[in-house]
Design a protein around this nucleic acid. Structure first.
Lengths: 232, 232
DNA sequence: CTCCTTACCGTACACTGTATTGCGTGGATA
DNA sequence: TATCCACGCAATACAGTGTACGGTAAGGAG
């Protein structure tokens, strides 16, 4: 099966709004931003475009191909922005833009790492990242590069996933500490009162609400130190 | 809404196989192992148990609660095994067991990090991990611990997700290099021949097939070095 | 003006998660 | 022991999903 990016755009009919893969991806993204991935159905997108559901299958063979399209559109946002002086600044900028994109489009973090990212924009971002990493002093051969890229991607995927789910539960239970304790509290409080999870209890009780962005940057810095530092 | 682990088991009837949350989770896991998460429907589980679909809703309020149950059952596997001498060995063992579990139950990696993990076994694993990390020399206060735990979890989530996706595409396209090139090759080859992605091209061409486990361990070691090393 | 290709749409099917209704059998009570 | 009620369980029903299929109408070619 040929990937999405392979197939040519069907020549648009003389319709009021010609419809294109870009247009479809755009409205799909808007809907996913508003109602989440679960609220995103082919029918809904079609209705939003004023079109029969099957119309979309002339541009996309699968729902999952549609998701691929959306993901690559987000990667286009991430790819924007020129190069920075030094590999570290470049990587930092790319990762921060990725985080910003994931917070803008929370569904993006659900898809991140779930499929191979082979769209042109995803490849562009991967290229920039890899090119930057390859200039780190400790990255000597291709194997080093592959490992470093793997470590970085793992961090991005995992950290963003974590942060977004945290955000969601915070939103669902209410940002207020009292509301949070009221909804999950009874169960968790009892659980922690068993004394079986003392360290976690300490984390919950004493854990100052660390700023998410600061934590992210901190851990990213640690990782980059590791990449810059030893690999040899 | 009260979490799953809160509600008492309904007293089983005098049926041939009494049915319980554990039993349900067990067969759900077996089905998910065999047919993936997409092939796992409430109806299918019920049929496998020789029971009407609605029967399950006496034990679980949601499909997603069922998934929570499955995840916590896997965490039970991960929690097994005694403590090791030294925080580093302990963390290593836990993470390796997590990896083994994710490779045994690939759907586990799809769920990892997607919801807050509050089941008793997940908490137990979290407790062991946190307790070990808190003994790292550079982890002084609760904030350090929170950051270190976040970094470690991010790595676990992201690395396993990546590895499982890679595995799946390898399986789908065929492990053979030739088959891989035959299916994705035409598109990717052309893409790489544009010269826009030289570093990635180098990775694809020269990239020796690194052993996945070794790469995982390598990056984990780097991360642990980072946690052990500076945080101050 | 006619014909034919082809882009498009509506309908249809198998399937999903879940609410609701009703039956039938268990144990408790008179 | 006879009665009854409550509750465990199943079957049906509904709204919604992704997608295959067959017909229709509109465009350009002769």
């Amino acid at each position: 099966m040929v990937p999405v990016w392979e197939r040519p755009e069907p020549r648009p009919r003389a319709t009021p709004v010609p419809l294109s893969r870009a247009k479809i991806a755009e409205t799909a993204i808007r809907l996913a931003d508003a109602h989440g991935l679960d609220g995103l159905s082919v029918r809904r997108i079609a209705k939003e475009l004023g079109v029969g559901p099957m119309r979309l299958y002339d541009y996309v063979t699968n729902r999952s191909e549609l998701l691929d399209l959306m993901v690559d559109a987000v990667y286009a946002e991430i790819a924007e922005g020129g190069p920075h002086p030094g590999w570290r600044a470049t990587v930092l900028a790319i990762v921060r833009r990725t985080r910003a994109a994931a917070l803008d489009h929370e569904w993006f973090s659900d898809l991140l790492g779930g499929r191979p990212q082979l769209g042109p924009h995803a490849l562009a971002v991967g290229e920039s990242t890899a090119a930057a990493l390859s200039q780190a002093p400790a990255v000597r051969d291709v194997d080093d590069l592959q490992r470093a890229l793997g470590a970085l991607n793992a961090f991005i995927i995992g950290a963003l996933r974590r942060e977004v789910t945290e955000r969601r539960t915070a939103r669902a239970t209410g940002t207020e500490l009292s509301a949070w304790q009221a909804s999950l509290g009874p169960y968790l409080t009892r659980m922690l009162d068993t004394g079986r999870y003392p360290t976690i209890a300490r984390l919950v009780v004493d854990g100052a609400h660390l700023d998410a962005e600061e934590t992210f940057d901190h851990n990213l810095t640690t990782l980059l130190d590791g990449i810059a530092g030893q690999e040899g």
